[in-house]
Design a protein around this nucleic acid. Structure first.
Lengths: 104, 104
DNA sequence: GAAACAGATAAGCAGACGCTTATGTGAAGC
DNA sequence: GCTTCACATAAGCGTCTGCTTATCTGTTTC
């Protein structure tokens, strides 16, 4: 299951921290490691998990590998969350209604 | 961390299935077990995890315990997700703008 | 109050997770 | 082409998960 990978990836605080850093701007693995008390292999493994979950994308640039947030993963979470919109605060529900009007 | 609990709770497919069932309507543990090939202790343990994450609430009713979706947990996910709205599809972003107008 | 029932908790165990150290791979620079 | 650098992968290890069976707690019913 794809959702398994996404939620499992985000269950680790270190991985969420990495993701948060990437959300502020794309970076390579070394830059990500700055100020994070984490070994190089650990970072590589975390990035592999995030990538496998569709939360992060990679792009080789010479001998660096640049990572950035993959909207696909976030979209899946939003989609999952939308299934339970009945339980969201009324304010968010009202927003949904407006969205539908906008689409028409 | 609260988010640890939430994402960890949802990382398990069985727990997501339980949550999905509860989203369709509140139920006691026995009813939840119907058609789920899961032992009574396992169900109890899963519900404890979901409850600990703020995704589910319980209410004693005689010798039954009724469970239902706790909006608090979902709200936290929505809040977490909102931090990365920059990466959502443009359509959702437009929606956010409308919401702000509505609030004023 | 004893039996029956809904559910929680305890203990134990196989498998998964996240880390470590060591080594491999691919590109850059001389 | 050899070294250096950025990163990935392999192997091993302690810890955590999710399951099981067995037992306990609390409530209803007679």
């Amino acid at each position: 299951m794809v959702e398994d990978d996404i939620f499992r990836a985000l269950a680790d605080p270190t991985r969420r921290a990495i993701f948060e850093k990437l959300a502020a701007g794309s970076m390579n693995a070394s830059a990500l490691r700055q100020g994070m008390a984490i070994s190089q292999p650990a970072m590589s493994q975390h990035l592999a998990v995030l990538r496998g979950a569709g939360l992060v994308r990679e792009a080789r640039q010479g001998r660096f590998v640049n990572y950035d947030v993959d909207p696909a993963g976030l979209a899946l979470i939003a989609q999952w969350l939308a299934k339970y919109r009945a339980y969201w605060p009324a304010r968010v529900d009202a927003l949904e209604a407006v969205l539908k009007e906008m689409d028409q």
